[in-house]
């Protein structure tokens, strides 16, 4: 494609644009504030699946929460389709690591929650809830309460609930982090199947290298203390992906590269565990 045309399209299709975002946290003991994020610039093209990876405490969750509008930046701005983010909005669906499904509502009412808040008429709500329950394989459990569901099923309810709202952007904060390894891998495949239908913009925070490589088009690697973007790499894996993608050449390469990067960025280990250094 001609570079000029490419530049013009990419400007038009920027879904999220993080500009010079800093975030400080006040310490309780009165010492100078802790810098969680230092001057973050990140643009995300519409329809891309972007993973954000980094060690614990690198500020990846904080960055995602700022993009959602759940936390205000100390400095800088996040633009969503060109408009500054000033608080949470249904057009930016958020999936949490912990179980956020409302236990007092049935699966159906959970999926309908966002639609109800937005004043969608009951008939349409019902149809949408049934469609999404079927899509995530919970049609038989539509009138069950969350306590009757397993962790993986609750996560599906959460995904259906966010998808039913038809957001532009999905912000996912280690959504499968609390699931067992097997369920986690199955949920990853299911998420890609969902994503392939509509190709929404996704920002997916994780500390799991394999997960990032398997899911994402691009991976943003973050360094800690202060939290900043260290590297941005493209995943050379074709779509649609399935279980076979996990054993491909490109997967292994990207994975090795990512591991190397994260190792370099890891905070210096105590002397006993790094005998190779002179």
């Amino acid at each position: 494609m001609i570079p000029v045309a490419a530049a013009a399209t990419s400007r038009r299709t920027l879904a999220l644009d993080v500009k010079g975002v800093w975030r400080y946290f006040q310490r309780l003991d009165g010492t100078p504030p802790f810098t969680a994020l230092e001057n973050i610039d990140l643009d995300v093209e519409s329809g891309k699946f972007v993973a954000i990876i980094g060690g614990s405490g690198c500020g990846k969750s904080t960055l995602l929460r700022i993009m959602a509008g759940l936390v205000p930046p100390s400095r800088g701005v996040v633009l969503h389709e060109g408009k500054p983010v000033r608080g949470p909005h249904f057009s930016r669906g958020f999936v949490f690591q912990a179980d956020a499904v409302f236990p007092w509502l049935t699966v159906r009412r959970n999926i309908e929650f966002g639609l109800q808040c937005r004043g969608i008429p009951a008939g349409k709500r019902r149809a949408t809830a049934e469609t999404w329950a079927r899509t995530v394989g919970l049609a038989d459990f539509i009138d069950a309460y969350p306590k009757e569901l397993s962790g993986g099923m609750r996560k599906r309810v959460d995904l259906a609930r966010v998808y039913a709202n038809d957001p532009d952007v999905l912000l996912m904060d280690e959504p499968f982090g609390a699931l067992d390894a097997q369920t986690k891998e199955r949920m990853q495949v299911e998420l890609l199947e969902l994503w392939d239908r509509s190709r929404k913009t996704v920002l997916f925070v994780t500390h799991d290298v394999d997960e990032a490589v398997f899911l994402a088009d691009e991976i943003v690697v973050m360094a800690s203390r202060p939290g900043r973007i260290a590297e941005r790499i493209t995943v050379p894996l074709a779509r649609p992906r399935d279980e076979r993608s996990r054993v491909s050449e490109g997967f292994e390469q990207t994975r090795r590269r990512l591991r190397g990067l994260l190792e370099q960025l890891a905070p210096p280990a105590p002397p006993t565990s790094s005998p190779s250094h002179p």
């Binding site: 959602a68 949470p88 249904f90 958020f94 949490f96 937005r118 609930r161």
Partner: peptide, 11 residues
């Protein structure tokens, strides 16, 4: 988390 989930869903 329930409050944040609700607000992100448009409540």
């Amino acid at each position: 988390i329930y409050v944040e989930a609700a607000e992100s869903l448009g409540a």
